[in-house]
Design a protein around this nucleic acid. Structure first.
Lengths: 360, 360
DNA sequence: CGGTGTCATGACACCGGTGTCATTTAGTCG
DNA sequence: CGACTAAATGACACCGGTGTCATGACACCG
C-alpha cells in the first residue's frame, strides 16, 4: 500500500533531470542567456512543457534581489464604505493609468487598501517591504495633503493625487489652478460676464486652488469678479440630504440677486447634477436661461444629463501614467532631471458638450 | 580609499550577529516559537529594531512553500477604455468585498488587469503561478459566461460575477432571477398592474434571468403580463447616442399604448437616469404620473436623481466577500460542503426611495 | 553526588533558483 | 592531424530564511 504523495510543482531540477542536462543549462534556457545549442534548448523546452514547469520567483529573487513588484497603497478601492461614492469612484482611473505603464515595464502590482486607520498604512508598507517591492505608489482618492509614515522614505515612492506637507516626496497631482481657470474661461470665452461659482467645501485643497484659477481667469479676461457670486456649498462630510439643502439654498441666493449670473461653475459633476435636478424643478432651462460648467468629467453623469454637461476633465489616467513612469525611472536610478518639480501638476482639458450657451 | 558599498537590507544573519545569538534563535523570535528566554528575546528584538530588519518573504517562501498571496484577475479596473464607464464602475465594490476578507485572513492581493486580450489572461495567470499565489479570483465587470484558460484549473480558483460555461469552477454571481422578481414586486406590491420593463440587450446573461424573475413575480401576484410592455433597449455595444435614441423610441412606444404602464422597471440605474431626463423633457412627472424602478443601486445616480430612485441593489460587496471566503476555504482544504451549489447566486434587496407611487 | 528530564540554544542541511569559474566539446587553422 | 580558440555545458557555492536534530545548562530527584 503506497502512500500517494501530493504532487507539488516541478522544480528546475526535475526539468534538468528529464532533459538530461544540468540545472544551469535549464536556467540558461529560461533566461535566454547566450550559447545553448538549439537541440539542447529544444529538449529543455520540451521537458519544461511536459512537467508544466513554472520557475519560482521566490528562489530567483533570493539570488538577484529583484522582484518586479510594485506596491500600491490606496484608499481608492475601499474609500469610506460609509461615504456613498463621495467624489471617489473615478479615481479608479488613476489605477488604470498606473496599470498600463506597469504592464509595459513588466512590473506587477501588489494592491492593498489602507482603509481608514493610519497604523494600517504603516503595517502595509511593512508587508510590502517584506515582499521586497521595488517601489511604492500611494494613491489618494482626492487631491489632498498627507503625512506619510517614515517607512515610505526608505523606498522609491511617488505620491498620486496627494502631496506630503513638506513636499519631500515626488508627487503627481491635478493642476487645480489651471482647472479653475479653464472652468471660468469656458464661460468667459462664450461671452458670459457674470459667472457663479459653487465650490466644494473650503477645507479641501482643490477648492482653494480652483478658486484662485477662477479669479485669475477673470483677471486675464479683464472681468470684475463679484464676490457674491462665489459660494461654498456644504461642509466636509455632510450627509447627502444636508448637501442638497445647502445647494438649494446657495442657488436661491444666486438667482435672487439683482443681477443673477448667466452661468454657473460647479465644484464637481455631482454638484452639477444636483443643480440640474433643482433647476428643472424650478423650470429654469439649461442652457437657454442658465449655463452650467461641471468639473471631473465623470462621464456617467456628463453624458447622461440632458443637455450633456460641459466640464473640466481631471486627467486621472495621465496622472497615473506619469506617476508610474516617474517611479520606474527612480527605481532604475535614471538621473532624475532635478529641474523637474517635485510636485508635478497635470491639467485636464475642457470637454465641450451642450450646457454652455454662446452669448456672443 | 574605501569603496562605499551601497547598504542593502539587513538579513537575519546581521541580526543574529548583533544580538550574539544564532540565526535560528532570531527565527524563533520572529515566529514566536516556543522557549526563548525573555532576556534573549529582548536583545534580538532590539537588534532587529536597530538594523531596521525586515524578513524576506522570498526566503521564507522557499522553505515553507507558503506565500500568503492571492491573485486577482480582473477587467474591473481597466474595463474597456472605449466604453465610457459602461455599466462597469460599481464593480469596484466587488474588490472592496474581497479586500475586506483577505485582510482578515492576512492575505495580500496581487491585482492584475486582463485588459481585452485573452492571451494576456493566460500570461497573467502564469505570472501569478511564478509568484506562487495560493489561489486566484477571476472578477468580471458584469454578469457573464466565460471560458477560463486551463491554467486556472490548476490552482484553487473562484469566479466572481461570472461562471464558466461548463460550470466546473466555483463561482459567485448575482441572483438576477430574484432581482427581476423583486424589481417587478416593488411595483406590484404598491398596487401597480401594468408594468413596463425596459431591459438591457438580450445577449446579456442578466437580461434573460431578470426577465424570468419579472414574469415569475407577475405569476405569484396573479397578474397577467402584457408582452408589449417588455422591450429590449439597444444592442450590446451601441454608442451612447444610439442608446439614447433606442430608449426614447421604446419609451414612446410604451406611453402611446392604449393602456400605458403606470410603472417602468429599468435594466439598470443608468437607463433609469436617461429615462428621467426623457420624461422630464416630455413633462411627465415621477412618480405622480409614472413610477420608475432601477437596478444596481448605483448610489451616485440613485441618490442624486430627483426624486431619489427606488432600485434593486446588486450585492457586490457581499459577493466579493463570499467569493473570497470560499477561496480561502478551498485553499485551506476545508471539507467543502458538497451540498453547496458550485455556482452561488446572491440576491440584493430593494432599496426603497421615492420613485414609486403607492396606488393602494 | 550522579542520573535524568526539561529548557534554551546552536549546527547544519535544505528550499530553487543564479553567478562564478572550471571543464568538456566542437571548430578552425597551419 | 595536432594545437589552439571559442562554444557549450557542468560543478558548486550562495541568497535568507526554516526544519531537524544535537548539545549544553540546569533543576530535580533519589
Amino acid at each position: 500500500m503506497e502512500i500517494q504523495e501530493e504532487r507539488v510543482v516541478a522544480t528546475i531540477y526535475d526539468v534538468a533531470q528529464a532533459a538530461r542536462v544540468s540545472v544551469k543549462t535549464v536556467s540558461r534556457v529560461l533566461n535566454e542567456e547566450a550559447a545553448v545549442r538549439p537541440s539542447t534548448r529544444e529538449r529543455v523546452l520540451q521537458s519544461m512543457q511536459q512537467l508544466n514547469y513554472t520557475p519560482s520567483t521566490a528562489a530567483r529573487t533570493m539570488r538577484t534581489q529583484k522582484t518586479g513588484l510594485i506596491g500600491v497603497l490606496t484608499t481608492a478601492i475601499t474609500s469610506a464604505p460609509t461615504t456613498p461614492d463621495a467624489a471617489g469612484l473615478p479615481s479608479v482611473n488613476l489605477l488604470k493609468g498606473i496599470q498600463s505603464v506597469m504592464d509595459r515595464s513588466g512590473m506587477l502590482m501588489m494592491v492593498a487598501d489602507t482603509g481608514e486607520s493610519p497604523e494600517r498604512l504603516e503595517q502595509l508598507a511593512r508587508t510590502f517591504r517584506e515582499h521586497r517591492v521595488e517601489g511604492i505608489l500611494y494613491v489618494a482618492d482626492y487631491h489632498q495633503s498627507v503625512s506619510p509614515p517614515a517607512s515610505l522614505f526608505e523606498l522609491p515612492t511617488v505620491l498620486v493625487n496627494c502631496f506630503d506637507e513638506h513636499q519631500r516626496l515626488p508627487a503627481v497631482v491635478p493642476d487645480d489652478v489651471a482647472g479653475g481657470y479653464r472652468a471660468a474661461e469656458a464661460a468667459l470665452s462664450r461671452g458670459h460676464r457674470r459667472i457663479g461659482f459653487l465650490t466644494l467645501p473650503e477645507t479641501m485643497v482643490a477648492t482653494q486652488l480652483r478658486n484662485q484659477g477662477f479669479l485669475e481667469a477673470h483677471e486675464a479676461w479683464e472681468v470684475q469678479v463679484d464676490p457674491g457670486l462665489v459660494l461654498s456649498v456644504g461642509k466636509f462630510l455632510d450627509p447627502p440630504q444636508e448637501e442638497a439643502r445647502a445647494l438649494r439654498h446657495a442657488l436661491e441666493q444666486l438667482l435672487n440677486l439683482r443681477e443673477p449670473p448667466t452661468a454657473i461653475c460647479c465644484g464637481n459633476d455631482k454638484m452639477a447634477m444636483s443643480l440640474y435636478m433643482q433647476l428643472q424643478q424650478w423650470g429654469v432651462s439649461i442652457p437657454e436661461q442658465l449655463s452650467v460648467v461641471g468639473f471631473d468629467d465623470y462621464t456617467l453623469i456628463t453624458e447622461l444629463l440632458n443637455p450633456r454637461l460641459t466640464t473640466v476633465a481631471l486627467p486621472y489616467v495621465e496622472m497615473g501614467q506619469r506617476a508610474a513612469s516617474r517611479l520606474i525611472q527612480e527605481i532604475q536610478g535614471v538621473a532624475e532631471d532635478r529641474s523637474d518639480r517635485i510636485v508635478e501638476a497635470l491639467a485636464g482639458p475642457v470637454i465641450w458638450r451642450h450646457s454652455v450657451k454662446d452669448l456672443r
